[in-house]
C-alpha cells in the first residue's frame, strides 16, 4: 500500500519512513508541511497518510486541518495523526464523521515499534487507532453517570475498545481470553445502553458517541 508522511522533524520523519517500510508500506512521498501533503495526496492517491498535528507555517493544528481535508476529499484514504500531546478536540474533530481508517496517537508511541505497526495496519485496513490516553481523557470528562457502574476491569476493556482494538487485541493487552473479553464487552454495552454491533469500527463509533465525541 502507498503511504505519504508529513512530519516536520527530520529525525522522526526518517524513523517513520523506516517503520512504515518495515511494515510493508511503500512510502511515495514525505513532506514537512501541511500544504505539501495535500499536493502529495492529490498526486499519489495513497492508501495511508501519516500526519504530524503541529507543522509549519503556524505550528498549531495544521495537521488536523489537512487531515479533515483529506477525509473529505479522498474518503478512502486512511489518516493517522501524530501529536505531541493529547487534545480531545482534535480527536473529536477527526472522529466527527466516519471513524473508518482514522488514528490519533501520541508521537512517543512510534517508539513502541511493534504496537505502532499494529496501529498502522489497523488504520490502513479501515479500523481505528486511538491513543489510550485520548480515551482515558475522554472517560475523565464523564465523571457521573453510567460509567460509575462499570467495574475497573470493564473500564480497562472499554478504554481499549474505544481505542480501536479488536477483541483479540484487547485480550492480548489484558492477558485474558477472548471469550472473557466478549463477556466484558456485552456487560459494558448493556450497562451503557449501547447497541450491539459486530464490526469493530461501529462499536468504536458507538462508544465514542457515548463519550460525547462525534
Amino acid at each position: 500500500m502507498r503511504a505519504v508522511i508529513a512530519e516536520d522533524s527530520v529525525l522522526l520523519r526518517i524513523g517513520l519512513v523506516k517503520v512504515l517500510e518495515t511494515a510493508g508500506f511503500d512510502v511515495v512521498a514525505e513532506t514537512g508541511d501541511a500544504e505539501a501533503v495535500l499536493a502529495a495526496v492529490e498526486e499519489h492517491r495513497p492508501g495511508l497518510v501519516v500526519l504530524d498535528v503541529r507543522m509549519p507555517p503556524g505550528f498549531t493544528d495544521e495537521g488536523v486541518r489537512a487531515a479533515l481535508v483529506i477525509r473529505q476529499q479522498w474518503p478512502d484514504t486512511a489518516v493517522l495523526l501524530l501529536s505531541q500531546y493529547v487534545e480531545e478536540r482534535y480527536a473529536a474533530d477527526l472522529l466527527s464523521g466516519d471513524t473508518r481508517g482514522v488514528g490519533y496517537l501520541l508521537k512517543e508511541r512510534v517508539a513502541d515499534v511493534e504496537e505502532f505497526i499494529d496501529a498502522l495496519r489497523r488504520v490502513a485496513g479501515g479500523g481505528t487507532a486511538l491513543d489510550p490516553q485520548v480515551v482515558s481523557q475522554l472517560l475523565l470528562r464523564r465523571h457521573s453517570d453510567p460509567l460509575d457502574r462499570l467495574t475497573p476491569r470493564e473500564r480497562e476493556v472499554l478504554e481499549l475498545m474505544a481505542s480501536g482494538r479488536s477483541n483479540a487485541g484487547i485480550a492480548e493487552g489484558l492477558f485474558v481470553s477472548e471469550s472473557a473479553v466478549a463477556k466484558h464487552i456485552n456487560s459494558i454495552l448493556a450497562k451503557l445502553d449501547l447497541p450491539k454491533a459486530d464490526a469493530d469500527h461501529r462499536r468504536v463509533l458507538a462508544v465514542l458517541r457515548f463519550l460525547g465525541v462525534g
Binding site: 522533524s9 529525525l11 522522526l12 526518517i14 524513523g15 517513520l16 523506516k18 517503520v19 518495515t22 505531541q84 508521537k107 512517543e108 512510534v110 517508539a111 513502541d112 515499534v113 511493534e114 505502532f116 505497526i117
Partner: peptide, 22 residues
C-alpha cells in the same frame, strides 16, 4: 528540549525498536 533531545531519543528508540523487529 522538544525539538532537540526528545526528537533524538524518539529517533533512537525507533531505530532500536526496528532492530528488535527486524
Amino acid at each position: 528540549l522538544h525539538d532537540g533531545a526528545q526528537q533524538r531519543l524518539v529517533s533512537m528508540a525507533v531505530n532500536l525498536g526496528l532492530a528488535k523487529v527486524t
